[in-house]
Design a protein around this nucleic acid. Structure first.
Lengths: 87, 87, 87, 87
DNA sequence: GTTTACCAATACACGC
DNA sequence: GCGTGTATTGGTAAAC
């Protein structure tokens, strides 16, 4: 039979504990993320009940997000130009 | 020139306001979700710095999630049986 | 020893041949794709030799592509509106 | 109003033209690459229609590619030896 | 070797 | 409820 100490040969107790902590942190964050996904789904349900077309609304929100990203990238490009001009 | 009332012909002010609120709520939740995504990525960075293999860790968490799902299904099945027995 | 006919028990000769053809076609296309990847890398090398900042150029090309996609999505949203108004 | 010559202060016409050419070449190659991606996807669709498991086929092709890479390494090693023998 | 970008695979939402 | 189409996620490859 394999004892606790044998297992420890492969990975120190401190390391094992650290691994457990990492897993716990990630799973906690994943759970919070899943909750938000549920919340969002519920809002879309409300939207539908209210009579709005969810597909259209999803597209609108998607486009608004793209616009924000686009602006951020334009900024990034500007920064790149600035950096390039410093040489 | 197009007046405010012309716009209102297409969609009532109250409806427009409601739509804005829905968009605001969803975008707020999306933003929180994005933050969590960032947080998770940062934890994985720590994991890597610590010397763990992130690919393996991702696999572990994925497997544990599957187990959780299976357990949830078992629970659901149990509830079904319990309900059936109450009839 | 396993004969040819034994193998054929598992997959008909015609089917085996068909499989080989699919693999050949895909690998041919993959090879062409890899060549293009090489070609593109070479152009970026030229770009660098010429004195342009490749990072900037990559960003520019990325933004141009996004603009095209963005326009396509705007069209899609318009189509959604049209569909919604038909009701 | 800003004249053509003002623009030229920042980047010579020849340089601008060169830049346009680089962008055109890269975008042309990108487009061809995208076509091949589409072609490959279509072949996989055929594969599926034919009754093969695409996931398995992808794995097969991936393994064959690895073998090719290994063979390429062998070739490179051989070249190294050949060069060494010429000295 | 780190990070980013792409691509396939899965999960989810909607309409029939 | 099923099948389609879309959004997210996970894995892979390339760039710096």
């Amino acid at each position: 039979m394999m004892s606790e100490s044998d297992r420890a040969d492969q990975m120190g107790d401190a390391t094992r504990e650290k691994l457990r902590q990492f897993i716990a942190r990630i799973e906690r964050l994943d759970a919070e993320k899943a909750e938000l996904t549920t919340d969002i789904r519920e809002v879309y349900s409300e939207v539908k009940s209210f009579g709005f077309d969810t597909k259209v609304l999803r597209k609108i929100i998607s486009l608004r997000k793209q616009d924000v990203n686009e602006r951020a990238e334009q900024e990034a490009l500007l920064d790149l130009y600035m950096d390039a001009l410093e040489d």
